Computed example of a mutant assay.
Amino acid sequence: MDYIEIAKRVFDIEARAVGLLGDKLDNSFSQAVQQILNSSGRVIVCGMGKSGIIGKKIAATLASTGTPSFFMHPGEAYHGDLGMVTADDVFVAISNSGETDEVVKLIPFLRNSGNYLVAMTGSPASTLARAAHSHLDVGVPEEACPLQLAPTSSTTATLAMGDALAVTLMKARDFKPENFARFHPGGSLGRRLLSRVEDEMVKVNLPLVPEDARVLDVIQAITRGSLGLAIVEHSEGWGLVTDGDIRRAIERFSEAVFDKRAGELMSREPAMVPLGTRVEDALMLMDKRQITSLLVFEGERVVGVFKK
């Protein structure tokens, strides 16, 4: 038995299923998108079994990309959770057969409440498809399952249709990275776009030295600060001596380096940003200058060091 060939056949079958979806799109897709854009409510995604698992992912993708959404289990819906549905909500019901009893049972309630119903099914002639205002056809030629029993290609196709819906809505809303970051404050993008340098900078026990400090004093300040640098205060503003500057000075002056002063070794125009600078902008400046540290200032004072 060739396990790799089996896996490749699964990929081929599922890729073909997704590839055919584009030909199935019609005005129903555009109507569903426009209805969601016009709605002041949320998108409620509902499905049973494997369709429900896919529905949870679709709801999560919608919610994180600018379309308020949540998943509702059809069984729980029929036993009280329908109280969470308002007339302004758009309801997305997922059922490959379009005949899933727990989902079909919700149709009278949705009709009476005036909810716009979007159905994702593999059967345009099914009860759910015919009851929907918009039907998104996710039918597939075959399942990847050799027994044609386990939902495989059909769930992949449904997931892809949900992604198409979410991405289309993103573009229609002109959803930007800053918007995405608001819903993902704990991720790296949230950090870059939402955080400010003062949220992450070192601001206590800064390694400050005067311009006339001896090299040994500068080295001690660098060690004490654990930032790989010393900040030099001089008559024209601020300078910077890094541990790299010290190494290069040793190579150049040898033992005579210990006769030098901080003002002789420092960079006179260190990279600096004001308090309130976004982390994203600070990181872009650091990439451009190919450096790993920035001085942060407020007025005439250096108040912190921001590092990658």
Rank of each mutant, 00 (worst) to 15 (best):
S39N: 13
L21D: 02
A32K: 00
Q35S: 14
L21K: 07
V18H: 06
E14T: 09
E14Q: 13
D26Q: 02
Q35V: 10
A32C: 08
R9T: 13
I36M: 11
L37Q: 12
Q34S: 15
Q31S: 11
Q35F: 04
G41A: 10
E14S: 05
Q34F: 01
A15I: 12
V43M: 09
D23A: 14
Q35I: 00
V33G: 01
L25I: 12
A15W: 08
Q34R: 13
K24R: 14
G22P: 02
L21P: 04
V43N: 09
L20M: 13
R9F: 08
N27C: 01
A15L: 12
A7S: 11
G41D: 10
N38R: 12
R42T: 07
R16K: 15
V43I: 14
V33I: 13
S28V: 03
S40H: 13
V10D: 01
E14L: 03
D12T: 15
N27Q: 13
N38Y: 05
G19H: 03
L37E: 14
A7F: 08
N27W: 01
D12V: 12
G22K: 08
D12F: 15
F29C: 01
S30M: 01
N38I: 08
S28K: 03
V10I: 13
S40E: 13
I36A: 03
N27P: 01
K8T: 12
N27K: 11
D23V: 04
A32N: 03
A15G: 11
V43P: 06
F11H: 07
A17H: 07
L37Y: 04
N27Y: 00
V33R: 07
N38C: 12
Q31W: 00
V33A: 10
Q31I: 06
D26K: 04
L25C: 08
S30R: 04
D26H: 04
D26S: 05
K24G: 02
F29Q: 00
G19A: 11
A15P: 05
G41V: 11
D12N: 14
L21G: 09
R42G: 06
R16Q: 15
S39I: 10
F29P: 00
L37V: 05
V18D: 06
A17C: 09
A15D: 06
A32H: 01
F29T: 00
I36N: 03
I13E: 12
A15M: 12
D23F: 11
V33M: 02
